[in-house]
């Protein structure tokens, strides 16, 4: 890996800016690899030792058996003719759609709360009530209301996760630097320019925080909703194999799920963050 990067640097000689960028990229990749690999190795070892000590695959299957089984379910079809990839895809689609809707509502709600006094006064207090409603209650109710359909999952996730996003964006918008607004005013900047160059960049860290939070909730809630109500998706498989007493299968389905969650975090969110916040030293 490192030698590949070095090769690129050699090709780019005479282009100092590019060389610097590639060097930086190599460094970032190394950091990223450390961030993922070190915890993974530690967890793997602890798991291995734990399984060895417990010596009961029905309580804690070992890592080797789990990984073998994970490869198995990813490559072969189950009793209904689906591989784990299909279930994973379903779960991911639900998570992506509901977190996107959640983020849009969070942005709209947060901005509305911070710009409109009437909305702030009438809704601000209800947010904490909304946030403390147990997630399980929301999931069960939406299953009943939307008849165990796809929409039920999406509704449950959006309903349970958005208030946190709204509060985050709301706090962020209240915190905007008034001095910068005055500056923009002194140069006669249009409202559109103020939004694009002052509000949006200021809100971006809050949006990232919100999205990460919403996504974190979404993984849990989607799977939980699938456990409660649906016949397909990773959560439904957890439920099915748990009922069968096949803990190894539950663990095996967990593996691709975790890989995806880590990929989204380190492969998408972190690099995006590094890019957006490159102006911070």
């Amino acid at each position: 890996m490192a030698s590949e990067v070095d090769g690129t640097v050699g090709d780019g000689r005479g282009l100092p800016a590019l060389t610097g960028y590639v060097d930086g990229l190599g460094g970032r990749l190394a950091t990223r690899a450390r961030q993922i690999l070190v915890p993974l190795v530690v967890i793997g070892l602890a798991w291995y030792v734990g399984a060895l000590l417990l010596d009961n695959p029905n309580q804690l299957p070992g890592p080797v058996a789990t990984l073998t089984q994970a490869v198995e379910i990813l490559t072969t079809e189950d009793f209904r003719g689906y591989t784990a990839l299909y279930h994973l895809q379903l779960t991911l689609e639900r998570a992506f759609i509901s977190s996107s809707i959640g983020l849009v509502i969070a942005i709209a709600g947060g901005i509305l709360l911070s710009t409109n006094d009437l909305v702030e006064e009438s809704l601000g207090g209800w947010l904490s009530f909304w946030m403390t409603t147990p997630t399980v209650v929301i999931i069960l109710l939406s299953m009943v209301w939307f008849d165990f359909s796809e929409i039920a999952v999406i509704f449950a996730v959006v309903a349970a996760s958005t208030p946190f996003g709204i509060v985050n964006v709301w706090e962020g918008a209240k915190d905007v630097d008034v001095d910068l607004l005055t500056m923009a005013d002194a140069f006669d900047a249009s409202p559109a320019m103020v939004w694009r160059h002052v509000y949006l960049p200021h809100l971006l860290p809050y949006l990232f925080g919100s999205y990460r939070y919403i996504l974190g909730m979404v993984w849990k809630i989607v799977v939980l909703a699938e456990v409660f109500g649906l016949s397909a998706g990773i959560g439904a498989m957890f439920r099915y194999y748990f009922d069968q007493g096949e803990l190894l299968m539950v663990f095996a389905y967990l593996v691709p799920f975790i890989v995806v969650v880590l990929t989204v975090e380190y492969g998408v969110l972190k690099p995006l963050e590094t890019y957006f916040f490159r102006w911070r030293d």
Partner: peptide, 18 residues
């Protein structure tokens, strides 16, 4: 009172565009 998320040049173009 600079836009810290914009380069020096972009800070100037902000005012000029405005």
């Amino acid at each position: 009172r600079l836009l810290n998320w914009r380069s020096v040049e972009e800070n100037l173009t902000f005012a000029m565009r405005a």
